[in-house]
Structures are given as C-alpha cells and as structure tokens.
C-alpha cells in the first residue's frame, strides 16, 4: 500500500490538567476523505491546529508527503502543501474576495518581497484567484469586500483560498458550519469531487455530509481516537454508539 499523505503518530497536547489530545494516531491516504467526528470539546479543532502547526504538540510526530514536518511552524507547513480552513471564517475583512484568494496564489507564486510591480492587476495572481473563486461558486462576488459577504459566502471563500494554494492535502474544520441545507448540499457535492485532487481530513458535525462523503471515519472522544474505520464499521461500533451517539447499552 502506498504511504499515506499525512501520518500522525502519538500526537499529544495537554492544557494544564486538561488532556486535549491524547496519543492520537491518524493517517490520510491519497484520494480519500477521512472524517473526524466527536462530541463538542473532544479536541477536534485542537488536533487540526496541531497538524497545521499553529499550536505546538507535547509529543508525537506529523509526517506529510514523506517528510517529518513536526518541527515546522504553520507557515512552513502551509508552504509544504497543507491547506486548512477555519471553523470560524478567518479572512482579511477589508480585502475583496479576490484579494483574499490572491494572497494564497501569491504565497505559491512568490514575490512577496517585490515592492514595485502592481499586484492588483497582475494576471499571474488574478487569473488563478478567479479560477479558484469560480470553482467555489463565488465568481460573482469577486469584487465584494470580504466583510460584506454573507456567512455562507465567507465559508465558500475559505474553500476558495484553500483551493488556490493547490495543496497536497486539505484540513477542513467544519466547512458546513452554518451553511444551511441548500449550501451544505452543494458543498457536499463539491467536496466529493475534490478528494481526487488532494485528500481531505474533514472535521464535521453534519452527519448527513459525513456519511455521504467519508471513506473512513475516526471518532475522537476526550482527545482520544476511540475508533477508526469505514462508515458501517463506525455505525456498528458499540463504543462509538455509547460515547458519541449517546445511546444507552442494549
């Protein structure tokens, strides 16, 4: 079997007495959507932050595309091809949607330390950015200021920015949050095709989306992965039913 794109081994994080992440092992293979589910406070977002390099882990390693990235910071991990979206949209609010995406294109294209050339009308930046916006269904909002976009549109913009990075893997932290049924459905269809481009580690509360999309599911409870497997396996797992689906014993 091919080596996984992303391999997490023994990742741990403790905040004082709270164990947010307890010896987590997880991998993400080429072409798959791996859903990470768990009750509120299970440590899903903390785990995403650890993988993205935004908070330092106490122990454990992260291998990405065959390289140990455990010691790299968030910037270097993003440059290595790890694109993440945020649970709460995190955008440059005064920039237009297009400029938000252009930043991501510029990161790959280089030239951040070019002081003179006009960036705003540079087709090398605008064209890939427009393409990413179109794919995320936001082409008509390109010139709109990010803070004027609707909640759902901001979620789409997060996706467009991740797309523009042309990453080797996506870390999507609740992309459907607050999207509404129509938006969730559209996004589900879109993510379904996206896995061919790069595998997706998907944190999501919307179980319809998870069951429609996931090739594999991992269940995180109190910072621990209690089960990993196909959808049917997870549905049948008694431990998961008890801990997560809140079901009483038989």
């Amino acid at each position: 079997m091919a080596e996984p794109v992303l391999a997490i081994e023994g990742l741990s994080k403790r905040f004082g007495a709270v164990i947010a992440c307890d010896d987590v092992n997880l991998d993400l293979r080429e072409g798959e959507i791996h859903a990470l589910i768990g009750p509120n406070g299970a440590g899903k977002s903390t785990l995403i932050k650890q993988i993205a390099g935004e908070i330092a882990s106490d122990a454990g390693t992260v291998h990405f595309a065959g390289v140990d990235i455990s010691a790299l910071d968030a910037v270097a991990r993003a440059r290595a091809g790890l694109a993440r979206t945020f649970q709460v949209s995190s955008l440059a609010p005064e920039f237009s949607a297009l400029q938000n995406v252009m930043l991501a294109v510029q990161s790959g294209a280089g030239g951040t330390f070019r002081f003179l050339g006009r960036a705003l009308s540079d087709p090398a930046l605008t064209e890939p950015a427009m393409a990413a916006l179109s794919r995320a269904g936001l082409a008509e909002r390109a010139r709109m200021t990010a803070s004027d976009l609707s909640h759902g549109e901001r979620r789409q913009l997060e996706i467009a920015i991740a797309l523009a990075m042309r990453p080797k893997a996506f870390l999507l932290d609740e992309p459907m949050a607050g999207m509404g049924p129509e938006g969730s459905k559209t996004l589900t269809g879109f993510l379904d095709g996206l896995r061919e481009e790069a595998p997706i580690l998907l944190v999501e509360h919307d179980m319809d989306a998870v069951f429609a999309l996931a090739d594999r599911v991992s269940v995180l409870v109190y910072g621990k992965v209690i089960a990993t497997g196909g959808i049917d396996e997870i549905r049948a797992d008694p431990q998961v039913r008890e801990a997560y689906l809140g079901e009483e014993g038989p």
């Binding site: 993003a78 400029q99 930043l103 510029q106 790959g108 951040t112 050339g117």
Partner: peptide
C-alpha cells in the same frame, strides 16, 4: 499596490490568515 503591499495589509487585517496560506 505591490505584492509586498498586499501581504503587509493582509498581515494587518489577519495574520492568522496570512500564515495559514504560507506567508510569514
């Protein structure tokens, strides 16, 4: 109006966003 300007203004508005696309 340059690429540097774009990154600098991006950093002012949201440095988390800038870092997450790979610009320090």
């Amino acid at each position: 109006a340059s690429r540097f300007g774009l990154a600098l203004k991006g950093a002012r508005q949201n440095d988390q966003r800038l870092a997450s696309v790979g610009i320090g």
